[in-house]
Design a protein around this nucleic acid. Sequence first.
DNA 1: TTGGAGTGTCAACAAGGCTGACATATCCTA
DNA 2: TAGGATATGTCAGCCTTGTTGACACTCCAA
Lengths: 165, 165
Amino acid sequence: MNDTSHSQSLLFLTDEQLRKGIEAMYFAYRGFTADPDRILEEKGYGRAHHRAIHFIHRSPGTTVNNLLSILGVTKQSLNRVLRGLIEDGLVESRIGREDKRERHLFLTPTGAALERELSDAQRDRMRGAYRAAGPAAVAGFRQVLEAMMDDDIRRQFEALRDKSI
Amino acid sequence: MNDTSHSQSLLFLTDEQLRKGIEAMYFAYRGFTADPDRILEEKGYGRAHHRAIHFIHRSPGTTVNNLLSILGVTKQSLNRVLRGLIEDGLVESRIGREDKRERHLFLTPTGAALERELSDAQRDRMRGAYRAAGPAAVAGFRQVLEAMMDDDIRRQFEALRDKSI
DNA sequence: TTGGAGTGTCAACAAGGCTGACATATCCTA
DNA sequence: TAGGATATGTCAGCCTTGTTGACACTCCAA
């Protein structure tokens, strides 16, 4: 074992290293949301709207309850956001054909356009970071992020991921 | 070039890969804040208090203005939080000796105890993720996070980082 | 057919962002 | 030394986005 791998294996868990990771996570998340936030502000929306739009785009026809369990907020909180998006013609809510209690959610063309604008901005940032760091770093990045999630969230994440492959 | 490195170098920037990274970042951040959030809620504080406590611990004697530029919020917003922490005896504000306009902020023993409780919880989560992913993954994780920050934030982060080494 | 479970809506409240205006104390320079 | 600049604190009011409580509609099984 050479000096580098020795210190790596021993020092990457020091409190100091962990604290740096914590701060990096905090500052990086601010960068991560900065570009969409600017676009959203122009249009009078917030991050909650972004999240709803993202996951409706991700799973068209999803029900309100599905969305709730993914987003981890109360239905009242989500409902307020959805109401705005529906009133503004970005989201369409269709009563379920099989179960009329359910509402299935879809993006309208206008909603899809905003989704594209937001995800383009966020992807540009992510692409720049990925390009700067390289494929090996990205693999590590993804590993650590997955390990950081709550167990039940990770299951949801993996389910979402698998569905899309 | 074998199959693995070929697909890595070509595919790690697809929209699909980037979208997965975006979702991973979102879900991981929720995990990242979950443990401190639980502790804070018991005591009637929020994330804003956590951030203030963290950076006062990080740089004892820091001024209000320093804190403002690190946290990127308005002084009114920070002041509301600081007032609460000072009233509750977690933070002490001392008038500057050189420049009496400045207030230097310190954690009291009570404040330091809460800081420790919060950072222990957050470090445990981070340590678990680091251990699960391994040193090489952690290096990549840090690289991508740094590349994701806004430029001016990255400068601040590097300044903070260097000061502590 | 009725009662409980599931789904969605409305109302009201709190935390924590924001802006704007202004007071105070202090520092520094012309 | 007078006056502008700087650092901080505070009041008022707004917005987003969380929360809980109450309630209506729909479905299904006893």
